[in-house]
Design a protein around this nucleic acid. Structure first.
Lengths: 297, 297
DNA sequence: CTAATTAATAAGTTTTATTTATGAATATCA
DNA sequence: TGATATTCATAAATAAAACTTATTAATTAG
């Protein structure tokens, strides 16, 4: 006969109350059922755990030794199962996501705010890394969800586009080019240029566009962080080209942004692993992001 | 639905082998039974633990988190039950017994030798304390088995007599009284007497016998240990009266023992608690002692 | 000595587990 | 590409177990 959890529970209940009758009500079980449960448990372990007379129930020395361990076993059992349940019920859990810095520093915080309000006990860690590394982290399973550019058709990755982003040029408030109605990439010729340092997909794409229109890509200044680029532009050190989603941030710092023709747009969206299973938590974040991006649907 | 051990075992088996089919043979279960077991487990915890396609089985992130804990739970479970079984099967265990020094130093070792051969993994601790304290230790539950004199009718103690012991007088090899055919307590008058120090039931009984026959109980020497008394007697410092079971020990040291008339005998036996349950280990020792005392039965 | 309390046993019922048989999906190989 | 084999899910039937009510036995309290 194999030992069941219920048998252990029965034993603990009887041992605690020193009475079959009392244990019955506690276990929501009839008295014979409890009797048999204990009997079977005793058979399984090979000896008496309780000495029952019609007037009293006492533990044998072996029962005395087993009692605390049985309690511990039951407690561990409950605890472990509760923990998994919590994971599924979003009452508890950890989530790692990766996002390219442009997104992580602009739109992501408000999304996480919304997620946090809906699932207060989930711990989210954001890895803000360059676009290519976002893909690598998803591929390697270090994060379940990544937000970056459309990586194109990938054998092991899924991409769900959220919105499309464009490039805008950022000027100091008093820059002469601001008087022009329509700005073209070519107009940036001869301007002192402020670029993001490598590795940066923005830098790569900007440099590619400029060379396409015979503008020499020769940055006068470089910086890692977008805020630094913004300050530099505002101070009149030069002009820069940044993603449209960062435009607001730059204008707060005193720069003025203008669209550039021809407009090139890049899709930004959610990257996830094609074959790996997604956790309930990541599914929940996925949900929130999609709702945020497409409020109508 | 409540979670069973079998369901956990099923989950661990599948998670380990990454295959339902393989887990089936390991669990001695049909494939549908296993399928349902996993399904029920997943329902109980509130989400998917495994992602099954027709070609592969992989763990979900939650499953991945649960897997090691499930293994641990099962291991603890097995371990605890095995430990209790060991207790009953006399494969392991501790036993505390109390015995009065006369017995602990003479006959007990060979009994314990026999017990040890029969149950090699039981750890026995012997408390050699004076007769009254043996009773106290049994009464207080500090030991399950005690060996001492018959305590008479006791409300909470059982006594099983094993053998009866008498007192013998111990003399130096060249003592004049040794020429007498029959020795009486009265003959000890005027002898230099060597007594055991208090508290000792032997001392009490000897002193009582002597005063009954108008022999003054005025020890010239006293010692705690019987061996010391033996040496003193052998050296000619005086005579002593000791239990018959210690006679052999004293004669080894050069003393000569003679019976004393009238012979008074005291029953020596096993004391145990009347209401407290006895452990399987103590039962086993009980058995060995009884067999030793009454080889015929 | 009777009534009350407590646990064990018996018989019958319900619930749960398990098996056999079958179906659906997918990779393998000709 | 299509047959084949493999793998897991589902359905129905059956075997096993757990549980309940009714009854019995034993012991204490009044």
């Amino acid at each position: 006969m194999n030992i069941t959890i219920r048998q252990l529970q029965a034993f603990v209940a009887v041992a605690r109350s020193r009475s079959f009758a009392e244990a019955c009500t506690h276990m929501h079980l009839s008295q014979p059922a409890l009797s048999i449960a204990i009997k079977n448990l005793e058979e399984a372990v090979g000896g008496k755990l309780l000495v029952r007379t019609t007037r009293s129930v006492v533990l044998t020395p072996e029962g005395e030794e087993f009692y605390p361990r049985a309690k511990q076993l039951l407690q561990d059992w409950e605890r472990s199962l509760e923990d998994v349940s919590d994971l599924f019920a979003l009452r508890r859990g950890k989530l790692n996501i990766a996002a390219m810095p442009t997104f992580a520093g602009t739109l992501l915080p408000s999304i996480l705010g919304r997620f946090q309000r809906r699932h207060p006990n989930i711990n989210v860690t954001v890895h803000d890394v360059v676009a290519e590394q976002v893909l690598e982290m998803v591929r390697g399973g270090r994060v379940e969800v990544g937000i970056t550019f459309d990586p194109g058709e990938q054998e092991d990755l899924d991409f769900l586009p959220l919105f499309s982003d464009r490039f805008v040029a950022a000027f100091p408030a008093d820059h002469p080019l601001l008087s022009k109605k329509k700005l073209h990439w070519r107009d940036l010729h001869h301007c002192a240029f402020i670029a993001l340092q490598r590795p940066s997909s923005i830098r790569e794409q900007v440099s590619e566009m400029m060379s396409r229109y015979d503008v020499t890509f020769a940055p006068s200044f470089e910086a890692h962080q977008l805020v630094v680029v913004g300050r530099m532009v505002a101070e009149g050190l030069g002009v820069s080209v940044v993603p449209a989603i960062s435009a607001g941030q730059l204008e707060e710092m005193g720069a003025v942004c203008r669209t550039l023709s021809p407009q090139i747009s890049r899709n930004i969206g959610i990257v996830s692993h094609r074959r790996r299973a997604r956790s309930t938590v990541s599914e929940a974040l996925y949900q929130v992001i999609v709702e945020w991006a497409k409020p109508g649907e």
